[in-house]
């Protein structure tokens, strides 16, 4: 199967894709974009979260064929060149990153939250990020990071 899709603003075309491959596998193994992570591969941990036509999805649950002709944005596509997105910047500054395996998914999920709700309350942050598992941080510094990113976006 041939997959043509637009990823982070660039047309991507890959051949010989087996029909059982997920969007996550194709991104990671065929398109050279391993930023989205493979922690559970059944939609429980959120580490593989990407935008598909602007909607956040678990890319492990999307068959690669479903992405044909659609627009995908991954964690690799959030920074503006060398300049980190405020969510990314806040994750680094607040110590919300330890091992970092959950980070790409959480960054995309937090990015989506702040696009929808510019100044989320704590319960709103918790609800929005409840589908993203983190084993290192206990989530406290992730909350700090989302609060900081919201503040900075409000100021900008």
């Amino acid at each position: 199967m041939r997959i043509t899709t637009r990823v982070n603003g660039t047309e991507q075309e890959v051949d010989d894709v087996w029909a059982g491959e997920s969007l996550l596998y194709v991104l990671r193994e065929r398109m050279g974009l391993p930023g989205s992570k493979n922690a559970c591969e059944q939609g429980e941990c959120g580490s593989c979260t990407v935008y598909l036509d602007g909607e956040p999805v678990c890319s492990c649950l999307v068959a690669a064929g479903q992405a044909i002709g659609r627009e995908v944005t991954t964690v690799e596509g959030l920074a503006d060149g060398e300049r980190l997105h405020p969510v990314q910047e806040a994750f680094v500054e607040c110590g919300a990153v330890q091992c970092g395996f959950c980070t790409p998914g959480l960054v995309v999920a937090a990015h989506d939250l702040l696009a929808r709700v510019p100044s989320p309350s704590d319960p709103e942050i918790r609800e929005a990020l409840a589908g993203n598992l983190c084993r290192c941080t206990g989530y406290e510094k992730i909350l700090d990071a989302v609060r900081l990113a919201a503040e900075r976006q409000a100021q900008a």
């Binding site: 964690v75 690799e76 980190l84 990314q88 110590g95 970092g100 395996f101």
Partner: peptide, 23 residues
């Protein structure tokens, strides 16, 4: 002091190479 971790930027941009990312 609490300087930022040197791998932080790579980890938030998806560029940090975990064992499962090796190719």
């Amino acid at each position: 002091d609490s300087p930022l971790r040197p791998d932080g930027t790579l980890k938030v941009t998806g560029e940090f190479a975990y064992a499962s990312d090796l190719w």
